[in-house]
């Protein structure tokens, strides 16, 4: 038991070291594809931390990501604060917000939560516009730094590793156990004395924290921040699709979803620029009909069959 539980993090460490060498090996184009992929790896893995065990589909990623990007933009552009300070403040703000939202909504069951999170990004975007319009004014939000794509890539890689490590620790903790019970049957969880609301809120805050951090780190890449672009509902959907494609049941599931997805997305964008939405729809169908538990689910199933056969 002990040896298998250490196998995964060891493999993960090797993969992380390989991934760290990407900017040294790839040219600028493949690096820019890798930055996008790494962004989604960090976002999807942190999404799966919460949604994997609890089965609550959150579409709030765009909202938290937007908070990260927007706060870095407004802090650096309007108040001349440093990138590092804003990158530290943004995830804290998002975490507090996630706590408030979590406390208000996570007592509700499934579908109400999905609908609420869908509206959340839009609500925050409008709130930001309203504040800008009435109090701050707008002068265009510039995030001018000396970061290259390599720097951004490495920062995202570190975030992704932190998410992974945290997920691994949570899985081995009482909290992780509690979440799995909640995911299987919430009323059972309540009956055995688990504080279901608190467990869910803590994980939801974690997701919010990391999504905002990723948004903050991506802001120097966009250089010019427009609320309409950072609070993007499309981002929330992409994160969910990639995580489900890989399989949210395992920590490394989103990783095996993101990599093929971004490569095919890139291929489709170049070969048939108008078909990316169609591609998105096909992936959705694929998940629902063929891969209900993602690639990970299929892999586990095959492993199980192989074992049965060998007996």
């Amino acid at each position: 038991m002990n040896s298998t539980s250490w196998k995964e993090p060891s493999i993960a460490a090797i993969v992380a070291i390989l991934a760290a060498s990407v900017p040294l090996v790839f040219d600028a184009y493949w690096l820019s594809v890798s930055v996008t992929a790494m962004m989604y790896i960090a976002l999807s893995t942190s999404w799966a931390l919460f949604s994997g065990p609890t089965h609550y589909i959150s579409l709030a990623t765009g909202a938290f990501f937007g908070i990260g990007g927007y706060l870095v933009g407004t802090g650096m552009s309007d108040y001349n604060l440093s990138f590092w300070l804003m990158a530290a403040i943004a995830p804290i703000v998002a975490t507090i917000l996630a706590a408030l939202i979590g406390l208000a909504t996570l007592r509700l069951s499934g579908v109400y939560f999905v609908i609420f999170t869908l509206g959340l990004a839009e609500m925050i975007r409008n709130l930001v516009s309203w504040i800008q319009n009435n109090f701050l004014g707008s002068r265009g939000l510039y995030v001018l730094t000396d970061f290259t794509e390599s720097h951004i890539y490495w920062m995202l890689l570190i975030i992704a590793c932190c998410v992974y490590l945290l997920g691994w620790l949570v899985n081995r903790s009482r909290l992780g156990f509690a979440l799995r019970i909640i995911g299987n049957d919430e009323s059972v969880a309540k009956h055995v004395g688990i504080n279901t609301a608190m467990s869910k809120v803590i994980l939801f805050m974690t997701t919010g924290f990391f999504a905002a951090l990723v948004g903050a780190v991506i802001a120097p890449r966009y250089t010019y921040i427009e609320p309409n672009q950072v609070f993007s509902p499309e981002l929330s959907f992409l994160v969910v699709i990639m995580a489900l494609l890989g399989g949210a049941g395992r920590l490394w599931g989103p990783l095996v979803g993101v990599i093929p997805f971004t490569l095919i997305w890139e291929f489709v964008s170049i070969q048939a620029p108008n078909s990316t939405t169609l591609f998105l729809g096909l992936v959705f169908l694929l998940i629902v009909y063929v891969l209900p538990h993602g690639f990970v689910g299929r892999i586990d199933q095959i492993n199980k069959k192989l074992k049965e056969r060998s007996h």
Binding site: R221, Y222, S269
Partner: peptide, 11 residues
């Protein structure tokens, strides 16, 4: 989408 834009220019 700025992310897509950057990728396309690099490409």
């Amino acid at each position: 989408n700025p992310g897509e834009h950057i990728k396309a220019v690099q490409r």
